[in-house]
Design a protein around this nucleic acid. Structure first.
Length: 407
DNA sequence: TCTGGGGTCCTAGGACCC
DNA sequence: TCTGGGGTCCTAGGACCC
């Protein structure tokens, strides 16, 4: 039996949010559809019909509507996206346990151990595509290669609704003519830096001495980029869920941020937002059994300048009041009370499992009561549902009617 | 109607310790 | 009496991804 040379699959749903949002609405099947992009928002997903007008995800909603005024705009339903995503990932796991979920709509699979059972990787890719189409009513594209980064590149070039294999002996001819920006991890900033060095294509980078690359990009980034350009990235596919999607993953941080409906220079308003966000983050942490020591805030000014400030506590916490107090101290230390802000965020970093932390009990500890209060709130949420507190429902509706926990 | 919200990882400088 | 050198923690910032 010959060795499997392209056992790594990268599966990427086509226009995932837009596809899920319209799959039960045949009247929208051939329409330009935009998901997201409401007031002060950006496009989360655009159907291929909308993309034909130049609409892209990440684009401000206002710009998208200028480009394609006839597009149907839908609010995101993250509960539905998550449900479809979980089902898709389960389909993958019926083929191989080596499924690395990268986000709601994409995953890497190592099918090297499944070829005896299911046939060559290309056949497996087609089986998966057929199953997902039958079971979920959406299409996906698959890239096959010997490495993750090349597989990822292949899936993008296979879109929409296609399959592309890049065998090891094709890597140079396929990769090297591409713009460096096509490489995973090369965004606009790195691309500009590389262009300033006269490096435009992947091949240009591959021919550069490693030391020169590292001098300009840093040690780790330079080495990583060279690996990508040569197609020699050896990182393996590990079975895991994506960060931020729960299920026992070692989350390193949890946070929440929100752009205001309109810019505000009102300290009282900002503090109420910080409390809401701290409460939301801490509730999620308690639900996940996590505590963290570093509290960070994000402040974005009306002119889009964005600052981060953080403070590390003596002990990890999941207590809303403690995170809130720290967030307020960080905000006050900025001296931004007179400035108009468009967004604040609260994040807790350095998360560890609460079970592994021995809490130092102090006499007359003031936070004890607050921890009790948190648990009472958690019980109320568990009993009456999270319709007004869950992140998904906040995004779906309630923007005007959201209940404030601020006192 | 300009520019979301969830994350991860890397770098660099200063403090601090041995 | 003339300033090493490495490791770790903390903080700030930035790039990037979906």
């Amino acid at each position: 039996m010959t060795a499997v040379v392209t056992p790594i699959l990268h599966v990427d749903m086509d226009a995932f949010y837009a596809s899920v949002a319209t799959r039960d609405r045949p009247e929208l099947r051939d329409q330009p559809v935009i998901v997201g992009g409401g007031h002060r928002g950006v496009v989360l997903s655009a159907s291929y019909q909308a993309r034909a007008f130049g609409v892209r995800s990440g684009m401000p909603g206002a710009q998208a509507r200028r480009l394609c005024p006839q597009a149907v705009t839908l609010a995101p339903d993250f509960d539905a996206f998550s449900t479809v995503s979980r089902a898709v990932m389960e389909t993958f796991r019926r083929v191989t346990p080596l499924v690395e979920v990268a986000s709601l709509d994409e995953a890497f699979l190592d099918v090297g151990g499944a070829v005896r059972r299911l046939g060559p990787p290309e056949a497996i890719a087609e089986q998966l595509r057929a199953r997902i189409h039958d079971e979920q009513g959406i299409t996906c594209s698959v890239g096959l290669a010997a490495t993750r980064s090349v597989a990822k590149l292949a899936s993008r070039r296979a879109k929409p609704d296609g399959v592309l294999t890049i065998a090891p002996d094709q890597v140079v001819e396929q990769l090297h003519p591409l713009d460096v920006g096509e490489l995973y991890g090369v965004g606009e900033s790195t691309r500009s830096a590389l262009r300033a060095l006269g490096l435009h294509t992947v091949g240009d980078v591959a021919r550069m001495p490693l030391e020169v690359l590292q001098h300009h990009l840093g040690r780790a980034s330079g080495a990583h980029l060279m690996d990508l350009a040569l197609g020699t990235d050896r990182s393996e596919v590990v079975a895991r869920n994506a960060a931020g999607f729960g299920l026992g993953e070692p989350d390193r941080s949890m946070g929440a941020q929100e752009t205001f409906g309109r810019d505000s220079a009102d300290r009282g308003f900002v503090l109420r937002q910080l409390l809401r966000l701290a409460a939301r983050v801490c509730r999620r942490m308690r639900g996940a059994g996590k505590v963290g020591r570093t509290v960070a805030i994000t402040v974005r000014y009306a002119d889009f300048r964005t600052l981060n400030r953080s403070r590390t506590l003596p002990e990890p916490t999941d207590v809303t009041q403690e995170v809130y107090r720290t967030a307020v101290a960080l905000y006050d230390a900025l001296g931004a009370h007179r400035d108009r802000l468009r967004l604040v965020g609260v994040r807790v970093e350095g998360l560890v499992s609460r079970a592994g932390v021995h809490h130092q009990l102090e006499l007359g500890e003031p936070d004890h009561g607050w921890a009790d209060a948190d648990r009472a709130v958690d019980r109320a949420v568990a009993r009456f549902g999270s319709a007004v507190v869950g992140p998904a429902s906040l995004l779906r509706h309630d923007r005007g009617t959201r209940r404030s926990v601020a006192g």
